[in-house]
Design a protein around this nucleic acid. Structure first.
Length: 427
RNA sequence: GUGGGAAUAGCUCAACUGGCAGAGCACCGGACUGUGGCUCCGACGGUUGCGGGUUCGAUUCCCGUUUCCCACCCCA
């Protein structure tokens, strides 16, 4: 049997209804904040991700689906292409390519699949779905303002509340400017040097490859050592501090709760200043439901104009997962309003006419078959969860009035053809 | 990529120390030829993930492999 390949999966009904529920809530909320949708290609030049995400990040170094495209001629070398591992680089590429800065401040969102070749586990797939948004534009349009950071964070709080996600937590930090980070990295290496020998094996490795990751360590014995390490905050310049303070000030004033986490570091090279994560319990080790931050230098790194921005990506797989355990999950599935049951030979055509008419009135209609005995039609209607069953038999056609039975109450009435839609809609 | 656990009917799971592969639910049909849910009866359903090995005999023990789950790395 041919199966879905490792790390990919089919999303089946009724779960797909939940995905649609999430996505339509997302679109509603984003619209209220004047974000508009962008759809970028699912694959891009490998170079885009190498430059945008960072050569040395794990994503680019070992987690991308990359292949060499065919050249036009057999002898010609094709270019290297990659399935997008995230969507920010593609959005910024499009921003540059289409001169979108001429529109001032751009507020763009996307919903779609991304691909990383990681070991699958719960909430982590090789084809996974992200919902993200970016605010990007020339500094003169206010793209650099802490007001943008706060607006994005407040929007996310609104979205999670709207979805009924209980118990989310917003963790906030500032990772400063590139200069600050360089100084911090240097200080961190120095501070680690004398103590790293006493730390766990993982930390000894991290100290060499990626010192920032030492902050992720969960080994209890290492915590006192980590607590004594320098923090990024000590290296922020005045501008970064003012920015960070202003973001917190606005969040407090609009009533979005958050906690500061000076251990929160981001893996992607392009992040500057504000970094954040929304976490949610009951997701196992993958407890981050969304993350994001500011990326003031990304556009220029990709050869574009100065275009500070801030964005985030929601792991939709995980979002849906945490929703399945909450109450709002139920409402998502729309059951048929009415089951149309043709009864006896020759009744399919009449049933189809009636179904067409009812559907024109925006009713959800399931249609049976004239070969079914009435009992079977009732069973099918009940199983489908229809509110009503409409019987289309010889008697009805003769009288031009149709038996309509409420499957929940058992109440049954004869309804004239012209009244059917109103009758079914009305109750 | 590393380490651990798991895989049996559509689903959830049994099967003693190695001895005929089962149940509940679901599905289909009937009891009931124009009235569902409840009940009763019946039928269907399997190369026990895949490939080797040991054995008279393997769902069971061993080796390999694939996938999923958990953790790590890393990350949304």
């Amino acid at each position: 049997m041919i199966k879905a390949i490792r790390g990919t999966r089919d999303l089946l009904p009724p779960e797909t209804a939940l995905w649609n529920f999430v996505e339509s809530a997302v679109r509603d909320v984003f619209r209220a904040y004047n974000f508009q949708e962008i759809r970028t290609p699912i694959f891009e030049s490998t170079e885009l991700f190498a430059r945008g995400v960072g050569e040395d990040t794990d994503i680019v170094a070992k987690e991308m689906y990359t292949w060499e495209d065919r050249g036009r001629a057999a002898s010609e070398k094709g270019q290297s292409l990659t399935l997008r591992p995230e969507n920010t680089a593609g959005v910024v590429r499009a921003y540059i390519e289409h001169d979108l800065w001429q529109c001032g401040l751009n507020k763009l969102y996307y919903i779609g699949p991304q691909f990383r070749r990681e070991r699958p586990q719960k909430g982590r797939y090789r084809q996974f779905y992200q919902i993200g948004a970016e605010v990007i534009g020339p500094p003169s349009a206010g793209s650099e303002s802490p007001a943008r950071d706060a607006e994005v964070l407040e929007m996310l709080a609104t979205l999670l509340d709207r979805l009924g996600i209980a118990g989310w937590n917003l963790e906030l930090n500032s990772v400063g400017c590139p200069n600050d980070r360089a100084a911090f990295n240097e200080a961190l290496r120095k501070a680690l040097e004398p103590v790293v020998g006493k730390m766990c094996a993982d930390c000894q490795r991290r100290a060499v490859t990626n010192p920032l990751r030492v902050f992720d360590c969960k080994v209890p014995e290492d915590q006192p050592i980590i607590d004594a390490l320098p923090r990024i905050g000590q290296f922020l310049d005045e501008g970064c501090w003012k920015h960070f303070d202003a973001v917190q000030e606005i969040l407090t004033r609009v009533g979005v709760r958050f906690s500061l986490n000076d251990r929160l570091v981001r893996g992607l090279d392009y992040y500057t200043r504000t970094a954040f994560e929304f976490t949610h319990g009951a997701l196992g080790a993958q407890n981050a439901i969304l993350g994001g931050g500011r990326y003031d230098g990304l556009s220029e790194a990709l050869g574009g104009p100065a275009a500070p921005g801030i964005g985030f990506a929601i792991g939709e797989d995980r979002l849906v997962m945490s929703l399945q355990e909450s109450a709002s999950a139920e409402a998502a599935v729309r059951k048929p309003d009415v089951y149309v049951a043709p009864l006896g030979a020759g009744m399919n055509a009449e049933a189809a006419r009636l179904a067409r008419e009812l559907r024109r009135h925006d009713l959800a209609v399931e249609l049976g078959d004239e070969s079914f005995r009435l009992k079977k039609s009732f069973e099918a209607a009940t199983k489908a969860g229809a509110k009503y069953i409409l019987i289309v038999g010889e008697n009805e056609v003769k009288a031009d009035a149709f038996a309509v039975k409420n499957l929940a109450t058992g109440e049954q009435v004869a309804v004239a053809r012209g009244e059917l839609a109103r009758r079914i809609q009305g109750e």
